[in-house]
Amino acid sequence: MIVDKKIKILVVDDFATMRKVIRNLLKQIGYDNVIEAENGQIAFKTLQSQQVDFIISDWNMPTMSGLELLKAIRADANLAKTPFLMVTAEALKENVVEAVKAGVNNYIVKPFTAEVLEGKIAKIIESI
């Protein structure tokens, strides 16, 4: 299956370096169309004003967490179908059930390689 590499990906994380890390990884696997937001609230605002094809979001953020963002998106008729990949940490993996029940497409555990990320994105896009 060939995945469209031109899709617009929104990376949400409060730590700027982390956003850069993910951006670099995405670049390595050919995704260049990347925008950023530093928390759920800003991300949600961004989604109101522009078309985003894929969301990669951190879980623990101030103001609005990744889970809250996910729930807001799933509750919004226009955005509900947007693929959502949650970034989580090994220690907090037990929490993912909550996100899964809230309708996350998949999650990825930090730290991850470009290959793992590529696989996750491809699989999600394949399934929708």
């Binding site: 370096t17 982390m18 890390v21 623990n60 101030p62 940490a89 730290p111």
Partner: peptide, 30 residues
């Protein structure tokens, strides 16, 4: 939470950058 988050973020990035000592310490504190 405000204290937890920075450790968490530092640990996360340190993991990517292979900074094991930093990651481990941040992890313990987290």
């Amino acid at each position: 939470n405000a204290i937890f988050r920075p450790f968490h973020s530092i640990k996360g990035v340190a993991g990517f950058l292979n900074l094991e000592k930093i990651r481990d310490l941040a992890h313990s504190l987290e």
